[in-house]
């Protein structure tokens, strides 16, 4: 090869960049987060049912919250959601967090796993172990 050393150095840099995800994870065995529903309120329920299926909520919870927000604040639609006789308030703080009172396990773990930083908590707040 001509100018071999320079080309090989270049190729090593290329490989180092391309394979970065492979070696940088070594030794950092990653646990997969599972949204935890182990809270006193949920445990005390007969029927563990939320406003929508877990499958749907996993993907669309941000949209649900966004819609609720507009409905409640802007349209004054404060009507509650009735699921099988159980009543949910359209509210992050006063709805979701009433049951899911384990923010760090239920929200933060997945968010940090996926590298997502919602700004909900700039205004809304949660006191761990409040319920």
């Amino acid at each position: 090869m001509y100018n071999g050393s320079k080309i090989i150095i270049g190729l090593i840099i290329f490989l180092a960049i391309a394979t970065f995800p492979f070696y940088s994870n070594i030794g950092k065995s990653a646990g997969v987060p599972m949204p935890d529903t182990n809270t006193p309120v949920i445990n005390g329920l007969d029927k563990k049912e939320c406003v929508a299926s877990a499958e749907y909520m996993k993907k669309e919870h941000m949209k649900v919250l966004d819609e609720w927000r507009d409905e409640v604040v802007r349209e004054g639609k404060r009507d509650v959601i009735n699921v099988g006789g159980r009543v949910f308030e359209k509210s992050l703080q006063n709805g979701c967090m009433q049951c899911h009172s384990n923010k760090s396990r239920f929200c933060d773990e997945c968010h940090s796993y996926a590298g997502v930083k919602p700004y909900c908590w700039d205004c809304h707040h949660f006191k761990e172990g409040r319920i």
Binding site: G76, R78, Q93, N94, Y119, D122, C123, H124, H125, F126, K127, R130
Partner: peptide, 24 residues
């Protein structure tokens, strides 16, 4: 922050606020 009303949000920096007439 330890003694705030847990049912009501705070506000964030950089927004305007005022009396809401307590819709909640």
């Amino acid at each position: 922050m330890k003694n705030i009303n847990p049912d009501f949000p705070t506000r964030t920096m950089g927004v305007v606020e005022k009396c809401t007439l307590c819709p909640e």
